[in-house]
Amino acid sequence: MHEVRRLLMRIVGRPAGMIGFAIIVLTLFVALAAPLIAPYDPAVIAMAKRFAAPSAEHWLGTDHLGRDNLSRVVFGARLALTIAIPAVLSAFLAGLLLGLVAGYVGGLIDRVLTVIADTFLSFPSVILGLALLTLVGQSVLNTTLVIALSLFPYYLRLARGLTLSIRHQPYVRAERSLGAGRGRIMFVHLLPNILPPLLVVVAMDVPSAIVIEAGLAFLGLGVPPPAPDWGVLLNEGFVNVAISIWPLVGPLTAIVLVTTGFTLLGETFRDVADPRLAGIGRRHGRFLMRRAR
């Protein structure tokens, strides 16, 4: 726990990390406190006030049914995160474990796992999502699963590649010569070394998951309307873009902001996580890297 706090302090200590962290905390706060923050019920229709421009009552105007745009974006954060974060985490865990095993154990297991991963990889994620959601039906859980399925092969591939690149390192041979078993080598020695690059990808994939989810919703196959999903909001906004652009401003800003936040956090994390570069400061790290080369 102490280590985690120190890592966090170092991330927040850098401008990019600070901004990313702030955006994500803000997003989480908005998602959790949506009912308290949102000025209106996101589902209440007021046909009289359709396509209102921003005003003191409706900061971001209203949509084609007179619903408050701001409230819908705020509630949308909930949906976005409850789908994106579990989807990415489960894809990450599955990909990490399978990739580690495939990379270290090798042989038939490796071949079977990579063939499965490549099969999934050969479909664009939205197409894969379309096909699967058509089969299993639309729901929040199914959307989450489908996104996880379309992302996990990337993690598997990456974890496997990283494992392959270090499995013949002298320290792994040294562990073997000390008598360490497969499990110990994989989970005590390989795992911490392949984790940082993977976590960076995780942080950067959260926004992709949001975008995939929004994309599916935009195509009418994600979370069904009238839920205030950002993708749904975009879809409805585009339909009526000739009349008013205000329904689009909220979801677009939200997606851009959250994407930037997670990306900044991920990049800072990558810089901070490597003990070879950390602690001695960035410049020293670069100096050492140059010396090493």
Partner: peptide
Amino acid sequence: RRRVQMIFQEPHSSLSP
């Protein structure tokens, strides 16, 4: 494994980083 040991060629990279 308890009774035999190896000292590896690479001083740094034979230690878990």
